[in-house]
């Protein structure tokens, strides 16, 4: 057999290898419908936001009952993060107060985070209506939405956040 032919055969053999390794498949196919209850990620486009709605007026009571103990009345902070105020504190030389209003670039993040992680002692216990309402209340404390503005899957992604353009990519990003 010529060296060329032999190389050719080896090449064919290597070409087959990937299909051999692909034989190790132990993942169990699952339908998107079955994944849905776990898919709680909400990106800036809001495409995965659930049905439901709420206003700041409705959220005030939710906040007082379920959030104020840790985040303070009107989001002024307590044992846990300050949620309101701090606008203008990011300027050079100042001590920054990074809040939903002064720092967060997307309102969808607020819904995503509160629904999955808050209240701290009972995460995932609130209805979607409550999450919309309490999110509206926190945005209202920051002067971003009106007291009766309805937040839902359509309006929430359109909320314009004051620090929307505050973020830049890391200059030494390897990727």
């Amino acid at each position: 057999m010529s060296t060329h032919k032999r190389l050719g055969l080896i090449a064919v053999w290597f070409a087959l290898l990937p299909s051999l390794t692909q034989a190790q498949q132990f993942g169990q196919p699952i339908s998107p419908a079955d994944v849905a209850p776990w898919d709680i990620s909400i990106g800036p486009d809001g495409a995965t936001l659930p049905p439901g709605h709420g206003t700041a007026a409705q959220g005030e009571a939710v906040y007082a009952a379920k959030c104020a103990a840790c985040h303070g009345e009107k989001g002024t902070g307590g044992p846990a993060d300050v949620l309101a105020g701090g606008r203008g504190s990011l300027t050079t030389g100042k001590t920054p107060s990074k809040t939903v209003g002064s720092y967060w670039p997307y309102a969808t993040t607020l819904f995503d985070y509160v629904r999955r992680a808050m209240p701290f002692t009972a995460p995932k216990s609130m209805t979607d209506d409550e999450v919309y309402a309490v999110s509206a209340y926190i945005l209202n404390l920051n002067g971003i939405v009106g007291i009766d503005d309805v937040l839902d899957a359509q309006s929430l992604p359109r909320v314009s956040m004051p620090n929307r353009n505050g973020f830049v990519r890391f200059p030494r990003d390897p990727g």
Partner: peptide
């Protein structure tokens, strides 16, 4: 130092 923040600083 200014109002900007680096995001996705991985390594």
């Amino acid at each position: 130092k200014d109002e900007k923040a680096w995001q996705f600083v991985f390594p």
